[in-house]
C-alpha cells in the first residue's frame, strides 16, 4: 500500500517537474504566430516547428548570441563558488568544533550573522553595492561581481556545513590529533575525506545560486561582463518573445545539469558511526 503510494507520488512529482520544462521546450520551436494563436502542444501535428527561437539566441540570426554570456557566467560562478565553499567550509568547521565569541555573542549568533546576510533582498543592496564597486573601480568587472556574489553564497555554505560537521563525531578529530596532527592537518586528513557529500551539496547550492543571480549582475555590469541571466532577461522587449525566452530557459540549465550530474555521485549514504573504529 505505502509502496504504491510511494511510486505514485514519485511519478506524479516527476511529471509535475517535467511539465513546465516540456512546455518550454515545445514553445522554443514555435513561431510568434503559433504562440499567439492559442495553446498548441504537439509539433508537426498542431504547428510547424521552427528553429528560429534557437537561432536567435545562438548568434545564428544575428539577433543575440548568449555563448559569451555563458562563458562569463561560468567564470564568475566558478570563482565565487570556489571562494565560498573553501572559506565557508573552513569557517563552518571552526564553528562546529571551537567556541568563539565575546560575552553573550556566541557561536550560534555568528552562524546567524552569516545567514542574516541573505535576509535583505538584492533590490535594496543594489545602490550601495553600486557605490562600493564604483569606489573600488570594480564596476563591470568579473572580480567585482565575484566578490558581491561571494557575500551571498558563503552564508549558505556555512549554514549547511555547520550542521554537517556537527554530525561527524568529534572522536575522529581527536584521534587524528592524538596521532600528532595539528588541527589543520586533522581537518584535511581525517575530516575532509568524510565530508564529500557535504561539500558536494554545498557546491551544488553555491553554483546554482551563483549561476542564477540576476539582480546584482543586472545592476553592477554594463557591457563587458554580462552574465547569462542578465542577457536573457534583456531579450524581453515590448512584446515578450516567449519562443526565444523558452529556448534560453532550456539553454541556460544545460551546463548546470552537466555539473550536477558529475557532482551528484558523491551523495552516497554515509553514516559516520562506522568510521570511528
Amino acid at each position: 500500500m505505502s509502496r504504491i503510494f510511494k511510486y505514485a507520488f514519485v511519478i506524479f512529482w516527476t511529471l509535475f517537474v517535467l511539465a513546465p520544462l516540456s512546455w518550454a521546450l515545445v514553445t522554443s520551436f514555435k513561431t510568434p504566430a503559433a504562440v499567439n494563436q492559442g495553446a498548441t502542444f504537439i509539433p508537426w501535428v498542431q504547428f510547424d516547428p521552427t528553429l528560429d527561437g534557437w537561432k536567435d539566441i545562438l548568434g545564428i540570426s544575428g539577433y543575440a548570441n548568449l555563448i559569451p554570456n555563458m562563458i562569463n557566467s561560468m567564470i564568475i560562478t566558478f570563482f565565487a563558488s570556489l571562494i565560498s565553499v573553501t572559506l565557508g567550509g573552513l569557517a563552518a568547521y571552526g564553528l562546529s568544533r571551537f567556541r568563539y565569541g565575546w560575552k553573550y555573542y556566541g557561536n550560534s549568533d555568528i552562524i546567524f550573522f552569516f545567514i542574516a546576510q541573505r535576509i535583505l533582498p538584492p533590490v535594496v543592496l543594489a545602490i550601495p553595492f553600486f557605490l562600493l564597486l564604483k569606489n573600488l573601480r570594480l564596476l563591470d568587472t568579473h572580480l567585482g561581481l565575484i566578490l558581491v556574489l561571494t557575500s551571498g553564497l558563503m552564508p549558505i555554505v556555512v549554514w549547511l556545513m555547520v550542521d554537517f560537521f556537527n554530525q561527524i563525531p568529534r572522536e575522529i578529530d581527536e584521534m587524528a590529533m592524538l596521532e600528532g596532527c595539528n588541527p589543520l592537518q586533522a581537518f584535511r586528513r581525517a575530516i575532509l575525506p568524510l565530508s564529500k557529500p557535504g561539500i558536494a551539496i554545498s557546491a551544488i547550492f553555491a553554483v546554482i545560486f551563483g549561476w542564477n543571480d540576476l539582480f546584482f549582475a543586472l545592476v553592477l555590469t554594463f557591457t563587458e561582463v554580462k552574465t547569462l541571466p542578465a542577457a536573457v532577461v534583456a531579450l524581453n522587449g515590448t512584446v515578450t518573445p516567449f519562443w526565444t525566452l523558452a529556448a534560453s530557459a532550456i539553454f541556460s540549465i544545460l551546463p548546470l545539469i552537466g555539473f550536477v550530474f558529475v557532482v551528484e555521485r558523491y551523495l552516497a549514504k554515509g553514516g559516520f558511526s562506522g568510521a570511528v573504529r
Binding site: L218, V219, K226, A234, L235, N236, G237
Partner: peptide, 14 residues
C-alpha cells in the same frame, strides 16, 4: 547594452 524595457529607467538612473 540591451536591457529589458522595465530596467531601462533604473539602469540609467542608477
Amino acid at each position: 547594452e540591451n536591457v529589458s524595457v522595465g530596467e531601462l529607467y533604473s539602469k540609467a538612473q542608477t
